[in-house]
């Protein structure tokens, strides 16, 4: 460590030190400050965007409830455009699909849900979109496609629901035996609407049931 004789020398040394390092310190400060400010601006932009998304989606839901079909479609389309690959884009596509189904336009509903799958920012949203797509495909008899999606989306959490839909598909194909297998699988996997599943299963009737049941 250097020892300084007097104040002048000290000041001189400090000036020298500042000359050597001053630029980088100031530069660093400016850069850092810009970084912090930029990050904050980005954050606040994100928040504003998300808040706006929430508001616009809310108003889309209201339009839908009030059966303002054209307005709801416009709002959904706009949201899908502005929030492509974001949650609100997917929500809007779901809303679109719902409206399509209500209007009996199932073909369009499949497109909306297909779009939702392709633009999902998140696996869990994707699972819901798939589930809904399978339901629509089943309703219009595009059974192979429905089965393909089920095959592709074997996710443990949704397994039971998909198994039940597999059963519905088999039943639509006229194969009650396979339907029973799928329903029983769904039962094992713990389907949420057990009541409905049991009704479906029981309705299959005689295939392979014991003749008498001792309830005790």
């Amino acid at each position: 460590m250097e020892i300084y004789e007097n104040e002048d020398e000290q000041l001189e040394a400090l000036k020298r030190w500042w000359k050597e390092n001053g630029k980088s310190i100031i530069g660093g400060l400016v850069l850092g400050l810009a970084g912090v400010l930029g990050w904050q601006a980005w954050q606040s932009y994100q928040v504003t965007r998300s808040e706006e998304g929430a508001q616009r989606f809310g108003s889309l839901v209201i339009s839908m409830r009030q059966h303002e079909i054209d307005r709801a479609s416009d709002q959904a389309r706009q949201l899908m455009q502005d929030y492509e690959n974001e949650a609100y884009g997917v929500f809007a596509a779901w809303a679109m699909a719902r409206q399509n189904v209500t209007l009996g336009d199932l073909e369009s509903a499949t497109s909306s849900l297909q779009w939702a799958i392709e633009h999902s920012p998140d696996d869990s949203l994707k699972s819901i979109s798939r589930l809904r797509l399978v339901r629509v495909l089943l309703a219009i008899g595009r059974l192979d496609e429905a089965e393909k999606i089920i095959g592709a989306s074997r996710n443990q959490a949704f397994a039971a629901e998909f198994s039940m839909l597999s059963g519905d598909i088999q039943l639509a194909r006229g194969k009650p035996q396979l339907a029973r297998q799928a329903y029983q699988q769904a039962l094992l996997e713990g389907v949420k609407d057990r009541n409905l599943l049991e009704m479906k299963l029981n309705d299959l009737g005689d295939a392979g049931l014991p003749a008498a049941v001792d309830a005790s």
Binding site: A95, R132, L138, D168, D203
Partner: peptide, 27 residues
């Protein structure tokens, strides 16, 4: 609640699935 509400608000049941439920529930 945002996601849960979105799932709820956009839920639907197709005519054929609903008919099937009616067939079973009101049997």
């Amino acid at each position: 609640k945002i996601v849960s509400n979105a799932v709820q608000a956009t839920g639907f049941i197709t005519d054929s699935a609903f008919d099937e439920q009616i067939r079973l529930r009101l049997q």
